[in-house]
Simulated assay, not measured.
Amino acid sequence: MTRPKISLMEAYMIETMRVNGITNEEIIAGVKAKDVSGWKQINEKFDFEQLIALAEKDLAAFEKVIHDGYAVKFVTVGGLERLLSLKFGKEDGKDYQKQQAGVIDLNLDEPALNELKQILSLNWKVEDGAEGISVLLKDQKDFS
């Protein structure tokens, strides 16, 4: 199943709202009503209007993002760390070891690992080996 693609910032906004107790239904209702003003208190730096714009392009796709999940168009190393924290509650040094090109020794259960694989952009490789899970940037030659 292919998931709709969203930007890393849109993923941050959605996961930040979820971490702060906003339900999927509340996210959809706020976006449909074009009233995201109440979300500013969660993170004043986020432009939650971007979610309204995303929904206006294709409401059904937006609802699918919220209910069924998404893929991020492009994830950076810092973006990976932030997603691991927001979406999965994982911390560097406790649940994984940060590397220059990603993370190793990641502690995730099977459903969360499958979710992570669906979210990540094509510039990542995820391996589940004897040493644990590693999530590392692919070599540039892998794209040719």
Rank of each mutant, 00 (worst) to 15 (best):
I133K: 12
I6A: 07
L136D: 00
E49T: 14
E15R: 02
L51D: 06
N114P: 06
G102I: 02
L8F: 03
N43T: 10
Q41F: 02
E10S: 13
S85K: 11
L80H: 11
G30L: 05
G89W: 00
D128R: 11
N24Q: 04
S37H: 15
A33H: 03
E56L: 13
L59Y: 15
M1S: 14
F46E: 06
W39Q: 01
L116Y: 09
L83T: 04
I27K: 11
K138W: 09
E10H: 15
D92V: 03
A29G: 09
E127Y: 08
S85G: 14
D109R: 07
P4E: 06
E127L: 06
D35A: 01
D105A: 08
Q97G: 08
K87A: 12
A101S: 10
L122T: 09
I28R: 08
E110H: 01
T16H: 10
G69M: 08
D58W: 13
L59F: 15
Q41M: 04
F62M: 13
L59V: 12
A130E: 13
G38T: 02
V19D: 13
V36I: 02
E25Y: 03
H67V: 09
L84F: 02
Q140W: 06
A130P: 04
E110V: 05
F62G: 14
E49M: 09
R3Y: 11
P4L: 04
P4D: 07
L54A: 12
N43H: 14
N43C: 13
D35M: 03
W124M: 08
T2A: 11
V103G: 01
E115V: 03
D109N: 11
G78Q: 02
Y70C: 03
Q100M: 08
